[in-house]
């Protein structure tokens, strides 16, 4: 296989190229962009979406989707803040919040598997349910978290911001699970064809539930970072974040139809989305152009991705046709 075709098989390459182009453009447009502090800020700002995107990649690769992650984020933050306020115990609050996030994610998987309802409808219903549970838990009140909690969102360890370190850990675990375990392999197989996976005696149910549970736990980690960053719980927290997370995953090169995906691409996708906001902020752009620019850039990125996928498929078809002609 030629280098060109080998490169075209790396599905996160288009988003990496787009991110590089965006970086070059922004460094030309704003002198502050390329500073160490700003690049560090971009990574910190992207950490929440990127961590959630890693979990979402596992779900999408099984041909599923979870639009309840914003509500899981809201519920987890609410539970943590409430437990901290009532008990003051970090250990209890962390354990319960992460456990609950995992259980809520897994519950989505169980419902999808058990009742064979489409993931979109199932997680739309649980989205409403989880948000309702969070509002009921807190009475829609804002709850501040202790100031030392800020370390998780704004602190540094060995001069590296804690959210970046956490992102690195989740990325390493995600890469390992995705590329080096049977779970990752089975998840992709299920996404390609759940029927074939069942016929091959793969543990489809277990893998699907585990993928949604992973989506839950990554959302739980992201919720705690977000809570620490903004200093307290607010009832608007997490609204709409599911679409940003899904956009990051798709931009990164994971197919919405499942079967093929990339963890690295999802993280770059999240960084790319933050870059747009960062660039507009640095250029002091009019607040009214933000959505236009973000929408246009997303559209261009999706079109480029679609064109590259189509070319890749065309190349495979041409290769197959050539093989058939040769044997004929």
């Amino acid at each position: 296989m030629s280098l060109k075709h080998r490169l075209s098989a790396v599905n996160w390459l288009p988003i990496a190229a787009a991110t590089l182009v965006a970086c070059i453009l922004l460094s030309l447009l704003s002198s502050s962009f390329m500073s160490y502090t700003n690049l560090q800020s971009v990574l910190v700002q992207a950490s929440v979406t990127a961590i959630m995107a890693i979990g979402m990649t596992f779900i999408i690769v099984t041909a599923g989707i979870d639009i309840s992650v914003g509500a899981i984020l809201f519920f987890t933050s609410s539970l943590f803040a409430k437990l901290m306020m009532d008990t003051g115990s970090y250990a209890l609050a962390f354990a319960c919040a992460l456990l609950c996030a995992t259980v809520l994610g897994a519950l989505n998987g169980v419902l999808i598997i058990k009742y064979k309802i489409t993931p979109l409808i199932t997680t739309l219903a649980t989205y409403t349910m989880y948000r309702g549970m969070a509002i009921h838990l807190t009475g829609a009140q804002n709850i501040p978290v202790p100031r030392e909690m800020g370390f998780l969102g704004n602190g540094k360890l060995l001069s590296i911001p804690v959210p970046i370190l956490l992102l690195a850990v989740v990325l390493a675990v995600g890469l390992y699970l995705f590329n080096a375990t049977r779970f990752g392999l089975y998840a992709r197989a299920i996404g390609n064809s759940a029927q074939s996976a069942r016929e091959s005696n793969l543990p489809v149910n277990k893998v699907t539930v585990f993928a949604y549970a992973l989506g839950g736990i990554t959302t739980g980690i992201a919720a705690l970072i977000l809570l620490a960053r903004v200093g307290g719980l607010q009832s608007g927290i997490g609204i709409g974040i599911e679409f940003t997370v899904i956009a990051a995953v798709v931009l990164g090169g994971t197919k919405l139809s499942g079967g093929d995906g990339t963890i690295v691409g999802s993280v770059i996708g999240a960084i790319f989305l933050v870059l747009i906001d960062n660039g507009l902020n640095l250029m002091n752009a009019s607040p009214y152009v933000y959505d236009i620019v973000k929408g246009s850039v997303l559209l261009i990125a999706v079109v480029i991705d679609k064109v590259s996928v189509t070319r890749q498929q065309q190349h495979l078809l041409n290769q197959r046709a050539a093989r058939i002609r040769a044997t004929g």
Binding site: S30, S32, S35, T37, N38, S41, Q45, V48, L226, R229, V230, G231, Q234, G236, I237, I239, V274, D277, N278, N281, L282, M283, N284, S286, P287, Y290
Partner: peptide
């Protein structure tokens, strides 16, 4: 006046404030 949209979202407000002070 440097105006930054936040959509009432504190996480966006945090990022916007960080970015605004980076540039200005």
């Amino acid at each position: 006046v440097i105006a930054m949209p936040t959509d009432w979202d504190s996480a966006r407000a945090l990022a916007a404030t960080q970015n605004a002070f980076q540039a200005n």
